[in-house]
């Protein structure tokens, strides 16, 4: 086994669960999330020689872009649940998670990716823009629009 392959193996072992979680937010499906992560890792292999020192930004960028592109290619649209939580509490409960998942699912794939990268991965606007291959201005506008949609969904959930 080459040292590059060893590094790759170590990285997959350490970071795959976290990548799957991000992918889950991007896709809304555990199965698709695992598939997305595998695809991203496979795509990272040819570049591994150059990214081995810090593969995370590159892999996350592939993850985010691939989630958008998959939607474009396959027109994946998750079936969203119409179930809404009965009440909104400070503590996150099952219904709250379901409402958030449903609200995320209603977002356009790029908006969803922006929200996940900005508010789950805590990336800056510039990092998000670089990861998705879009401008900072687009990140701002997509983020603004996505948050507004989430709020509407929240209100709908409350009502």
């Amino acid at each position: 086994m080459s040292s590059a392959e060893e590094q790759f193996t170590a990285y997959v072992g350490a970071r795959r669960p976290a990548l799957v979680r991000t992918a889950y937010l991007l896709t809304g499906s555990a199965e698709d999330a695992e598939d997305l992560v595998q695809t991203a890792l496979i795509k990272a292999v040819p570049k591994w020689g150059r990214i081995a020192d810090d593969p995370e930004p590159y892999v996350r960028a592939i993850l985010a872009r691939e989630s958008v592109n998959r939607w474009r290619r396959r027109r994946w649209r998750e079936v969203t649940s119409d179930m809404l939580p009965e009440t909104r509490t400070a503590e996150v409960d099952v219904a709250g998670r379901e409402a958030l998942r449903s609200a995320l699912a209603r977002l356009a794939p790029r908006q969803r990716a922006v929200i996940v990268l900005r508010y789950y991965e805590d990336m800056t606007e510039r990092q998000t823009a670089e990861a998705l291959g879009i401008s900072v201005g687009t990140v701002k506008s997509q983020c603004r629009d996505a948050l507004a949609r989430l709020r509407v969904s929240e209100l709908a959930a409350l009502s």
Partner: peptide
């Protein structure tokens, strides 16, 4: 939102 996203991600 960060907390809720992390919580949702933990579902998987």
């Amino acid at each position: 939102l960060h907390e809720r996203l992390a919580d949702l991600a933990g579902d998987v």
